[in-house]
């Protein structure tokens, strides 16, 4: 039997339940970036160089092969790990060394990494080594940047021009 007392009590219970639903549906607000912060994201897909140079087979080696398999060069499948450093005002904010995936370590690497940085003017430097046979960076980029609050600066790699693309 739905008495007046029960109706009131039910109303209170429904209000409490919906209050809970409403509150946590929006609140408390989550502060992802402080008012004086911006974000730099490193987002690139890149394949390291092969770990060894291709080797030209000798005539003797070629003769031993069936005619349809006489490829002149033998290239290793394994690729170099890719090391990427992002420096803001000479301080490393991202420093990653990614090994190539795949059973034969022959795949390209994918990186997505975001860091918070203070707003204002900075010196951005990006260094990448994608060749195990070379000491030091194989690609280098530096630029002065100016970041406002909540800006997102994305560092990519443009394969067509073989250089970093920052926007």
């Amino acid at each position: 039997m739905l008495s007046a007392k029960r109706l009131v009590l039910q109303g209170i219970n429904y209000a409490l339940f919906m209050g809970l639903v409403w509150y946590f549906s929006f609140s408390p607000p989550y502060v992802r970036l402080a008012a004086d912060e911006a974000m730099i994201s490193l987002a690139l897909s890149h394949a390291g160089k092969p770990v060894q140079e291709c080797r030209r087979k000798s005539q003797e080696e070629l003769n031993k092969l069936p005619p349809n398999m006489r490829v002149l060069e033998e290239c290793p499948r394994e690729r170099s790990p890719v090391r990427i450093e992002v420096l803001v005002d000479d301080q490393a904010v991202i420093d990653e060394r990614i090994n190539p995936p795949g059973l034969y370590k022959d795949q390209g690497v994918d990186v997505y990494h975001s860091v918070k940085v203070p707003v204002g003017d900075h010196r951005l430097e990006v260094r990448m080594n994608d060749n195990i046979r070379v000491a030091g960076p194989t690609h280098h980029y530096h630029q002065s940047i100016s970041l406002s609050a909540a800006d997102l600066l994305v560092i990519q790699f443009n394969h067509a021009h073989n250089q970093f693309l920052v926007k």
């Binding site: 929006f26 609140s27 607000p29 502060v31 970036l33 800006d151 926007k167």
Partner: peptide
């Protein structure tokens, strides 16, 4: 090109 600084998450 922008990062939302404050989000009203559905917790």
């Amino acid at each position: 090109s922008k990062v939302p600084a404050i989000l009203n998450l559905d917790w």
